[in-house]
Simulated scan of single mutants.
Amino acid sequence: MPRLRPGRRTVAGVAGAVLAGPLATAAPAAADVNPEGRAGRGAAPAPAPVSTASGSSVSGSTAPVSTASGSTASGSSVSGSTASGSSVSGFSAAPLPLGAGRMGMSYQEDTGDRAAGPLSSSGGVQGVDVSHYQGSIKWASVRAAGVQFAWIKATEGTTYKDPNFNANYVGAYKNKVIRGAYHFARPDASGGTAQANYFATHGGAWSRDNLTLPGVLDIEGTCYGKSKTAMRTWIGDFYRAYKAKTGRDVVIYTSRNWWSSCTGSWGGMSAKSPLWVAHWTSAASPTIPGGFPVWTVWQYSSTGRVGGISGNVDRDKFNGTRARLLALANNTP
């Protein structure tokens, strides 16, 4: 096995795979974080739900399908990006309504791909990611269907909290689904530090309780008018602020195309943040962004079907055993 630098941990069964950054001591103790993901008391209540008409689920089966025309097993190429990072190929530069962001929305528009990859019956540690778009979820049925982990949308920008977050976060916890929260990044709205602080205090907190994963920075869409250098700075600011609040290295969710176009395949986060890559394909493994040596989580489909969830749901796979997933959750070697 290749020699690893001190303080780095590996995903079981993946030589040299970075599971997380340097071992950190949790800032909040387990007793200081409640099942809703709030540090202490006094977290702001969720704002009123936004309309989900434009983001309603599309029906379909979980049987593997071929990728959309023009996409490849390694992901679609990036074109049309500018020096200022204004856009990623195929994705509209129109402003996104606050609260409308969800995982994979730009990947779908960029590639036109809705392919289903390996199903839960193929083995591996399986998961889902959800938001208010999935409506009311029966978490007991989700767990019974073999789902072991979930990331749940918590926040967007510095003012929006997903209206279904509390119900989903507590429901997953009560049914022993290892869960975490994610923040949909809006680099056009405010700085990375401000958004990380809002996330950490409105759902993205962490505790070592065998059921809480570190938070996720969902970074996708356009390049929000930022240069590659400016985007790297924004991501770095978010990372440092989140770690200062929680003691954890934030997980980065992105795609090869976005990371290449908007950060220039930056390698500055590879030793710090586990990678969650979006690549909807029936291939045996995903194509990962330049700058990362290995993936930790793979979002392989947007058309999964799971008991307890109405309509389609994103499906995810962890790169390792359940024991390694628990190590990621508990911040242990």
Rank of each mutant, 00 (worst) to 15 (best):
V125Y: 03
R305F: 01
K228L: 08
S59T: 13
G171H: 07
R305H: 07
S84G: 14
P274D: 08
A53S: 14
L326E: 14
T246F: 08
T321G: 07
G180P: 06
W266H: 11
M105W: 14
G135Q: 08
G304Y: 06
M105S: 09
T332D: 10
A283C: 03
P49T: 14
A167M: 01
T263W: 11
D314F: 01
G191D: 10
Y300T: 14
I235L: 12
S273L: 11
K228G: 04
A17C: 15
W206Q: 04
L211R: 10
A283P: 03
R38C: 13
R240I: 01
V313L: 03
Y300M: 13
A17D: 11
N210P: 05
Y224T: 10
K161Q: 14
L211C: 04
Q134T: 06
V313Y: 00
G146E: 08
F184I: 05
I235Q: 07
A73N: 09
N197K: 15
P293N: 15
A31S: 10
S282L: 08
F149I: 10
G236V: 09
V14K: 13
D113Q: 06
G37Y: 03
P163E: 07
G267N: 13
A230V: 05
N331F: 10
T229R: 14
H202W: 04
A44M: 12
F238M: 03
A93Y: 00
G16A: 09
P118T: 11
